[in-house]
Amino acid sequence: MRPAHNRLTVNGELREVLFDATKTLLEVLREDLRLTGTKHGCELGECGTCAVLMEGRPVLSCLVLGVECDGADVTTVEGLAEGPALHPLQEAFADRGAAQCGYCTPGILLTAKALLDRNPHPTRGEIAEALSGNLCRCTGYLQIFEAVEEAARTERTDPPTQGRTYRPADAQARPRAGDAR
């Protein structure tokens, strides 16, 4: 099979990648772009571990084929911080014990970011609902809820990540293959 060739925006940077056309976005990110911050837990779309943002919406990268991503705008955990400054969600997760082993953390951070982007002050129930597709075996979720709430309280003066083409209005875009919810 001929390798696929894509141009996509990853964390605000245009990347060109040549990859085995059978690969999922998860595999392209980890194996071809070496962005190993995105983890895998099942490769069947069941655990939420591999969630990334595509056009600002959470998707399970194990259910998205790499070839579907030509021209896409993808955000991974590596794109959350502004230079050395952590995103408020990252600060809160680190401070509040929301990351124990840290393996489900990248997927949860991105899912939570998508939630806060569309609903800056969610209720506890809305947070639980938004994260219900992301399994965590360590924390029992409560410190994760608190961290999201703390991040929501944090006044965010930082502008959106540099170079990001995503705008909140895009969040209403059409559903795509691999949509987390």
Binding site: G37, Q90, A94, G102
Partner: peptide, 13 residues
């Protein structure tokens, strides 16, 4: 904050 907290939230672990 746990000493390895930053690594875990940045995906650097």
């Amino acid at each position: 904050r746990r000493v390895d907290g930053r690594a875990k939230v940045t995906g650097q672990t």
